[in-house]
Computed example of a mutant assay.
Amino acid sequence: MSSTRQDDVQRPFRRYLSKTPEISVFFWIIKILASAAGDPVADLLGTTAGLGLAITTMLLATATTVVILIQFSAARYVAGLYWLTVVLISVMGSLVVDNLTDILEVPLGVTVIAAAVLLAGTFVVWFAAEKTLSIHTIDTGRRETFYWVAVALTFVLGTAAERLAVPSVSAVAGLVALLVAGLASRVRGVPALIPFWLAYLVTQPLGVAVSNLLSEPRDAGGLQIGVAGISAGILAAVVALVRYVSATHRDDPSLDNTRRPW
């Protein structure tokens, strides 16, 4: 039996080796929190701590690269490592948009279009190379590369798109889109990857809008919480939830397709 054929036969049993978590309500809650952490953490380091955009970007890019390399070297899904990677990519997504807007003076609309085209191109190349876009069999280095590139592009696209809209509108639109994606995932005949990536994308502007509303002045309808407080609160919530799913194994990769809507 050829190595390719043998790999195809064994793949269903290798889902236990998948490097991505089971998609559950905990996944989406942590994802929204991770999305909400991007802007305040970037502002905390760049503005409040006085590091500036350039130094903050270099530091976060270095940290993100190191963590991603560790993530790739892991033999299986590790909740803490996976979500640390997501949080860092969230912050980097904010910093990328900041650099494009403030340093290179790229209009937000151009960033949205470019990120959308790159994301679509990633899915095309991913499918051409792997003949699947399954998020439940991220069990090879190449599939994991495609997965994280797609994730990073959703953060950039979602952040830029949110900045084009009013925060309250983004929050409502993101919540509605997330609910629609959830319902679509349960409709027979709809490919699971479509509602998943739609939900993954819209949770980014939703999270950013939530963090913006928390930091907005009271007379503008916000809670006027400083970036330090927002960052600490969001990161503490992420840590608590990740510790919970790690202890309970609620998000371990599963072979049970009957309980998997995504």
Rank of each mutant, 00 (worst) to 15 (best):
L193G: 12
P217K: 01
V172K: 06
A220T: 05
G229A: 01
A177Y: 06
R218N: 04
P195I: 11
A220H: 11
A177N: 08
L213E: 03
V202Q: 08
V210C: 13
I225G: 00
D219M: 05
L201S: 11
L183H: 11
A236P: 03
N212M: 15
L235C: 06
Q224C: 02
L213H: 07
G189W: 09
G221A: 05
L178H: 10
R218H: 08
R218C: 05
A173D: 12
G182S: 10
V208R: 04
R186L: 13
L235H: 00
E216Q: 13
R188I: 13
L193T: 15
G222R: 01
W197R: 04
I230H: 00
V190E: 15
L206G: 13
V208N: 13
A199H: 05
I225E: 02
L193W: 14
A228Q: 01
V172S: 09
G222S: 01
V190R: 12
A192Q: 14
V208D: 12
S215G: 15
I234K: 00
S185T: 01
L175T: 15
V176A: 03
P195S: 12
T203C: 11
V187H: 13
V176F: 09
A209E: 12
G221S: 03
A177V: 09
P195D: 14
D219L: 11
G229T: 07
A177H: 06
V210Q: 00
R218E: 14
V202G: 08
I234A: 00
L179K: 03
P217I: 03
R186V: 11
A236Y: 14
Q204V: 15
P217F: 08
A209P: 12
A184V: 04
A199I: 08
L198Y: 09
V202E: 08
G182N: 01
L179V: 14
G226L: 01
